[in-house]
Design a protein around this nucleic acid. Structure first.
Length: 226
DNA sequence: ACCCAGGGTCATA
DNA sequence: TATGACCATGGG
């Protein structure tokens, strides 16, 4: 069957290592993960720049700052009133949990998911890139990308279904999971916006069979008892 | 003037 | 389980 692994290696060949997440500290990863919710990364960069200039990009400082101050700082990232609250809640959790060295991954994940404003993608991003434990991150790009390669019938395939699928095909290696997700995003930002088959997409150069040979479209385990 | 971006929560059927 | 409204800024 088509190895997801081949898709990964192909992306790596084309784009090279991405060295994600673009942040200087684990805490900055967490902040970025909240701020980028349904928001262009370019806008997140401005917000983070503001936080740095105001010396707010540290747990204690961020928690001490008035909500209004925080709101103004992150305004460029949109949803600023919502996200200011989420940042504080997430920061409290971060202080409690860090570094979570001998905490099982799934326990860490369920703790993060309890935080209001942290959903599955945000949680997984934090676990993978801040806490550095091997969990696979699924975003809208990932769903669209795998859908177009024929792995799923719908782009709306539930988060946990896509996640389980990848984790069942790819061994839980930290660097591998980091790079794979980063490569999918970087690729998608360039080529996967509009048409299902953009002529300039490097992956289209390959015969579709290179990716999909032997693969049967993956159906939901929920609807097909597996 | 529109559409979308590295989501999540809540209400409703 | 699955839509739809809402949150809000900045770029194409």
């Amino acid at each position: 069957m088509l190895e997801l692994n081949k898709v990964y290696r192909r992306l790596l060949n084309i784009y090279g290592p991405q060295h994600w997440w673009p942040a200087e500290t684990p805490f900055e990863v967490l902040v970025g993960a909240i701020l980028t919710q349904n928001t262009a990364w370019k806008n997140v960069e401005r917000a983070i720049r503001n936080l740095k200039e105001m010396k707010l990009l540290q747990p204690i400082a961020l928690l001490s700052a008035p909500l209004e101050t925080l709101e103004q700082a992150i305004k460029p990232a949109g949803f600023y009133r919502l996200k200011a609250k989420r940042l504080k809640e997430a920061t409290k959790a971060f202080k409690e949990l860090w570094p979570a060295d001998h905490m099982p991954l799934l326990k860490l994940r369920s703790r993060l998911l309890q935080v209001h404003g942290i959903g599955p993608e945000t949680a997984d991003s934090i676990i993978l890139y801040a806490f550095e434990k091997p969990t696979f991150v699924v975003d809208t790009y990932t769903k669209r990308f795998f859908h177009r390669l024929g792995f799923f019938k719908s782009e709306k395939t539930p988060y946990e279904v896509v996640k389980r699928f990848v984790e069942s095909q790819i061994p839980p290696n930290l660097q591998l999971y980091k790079e794979f997700h980063a490569l999918i995003v970087e690729h998608s930002k360039r080529f996967c916006r509009k048409s299902p088959h953009c002529d300039e997409c490097p992956l289209v150069e390959c015969p579709r069979s290179f990716f999909t040979a032997g693969i049967t479209t993956f159906d939901h385990p929920s609807s097909a008892s597996r």
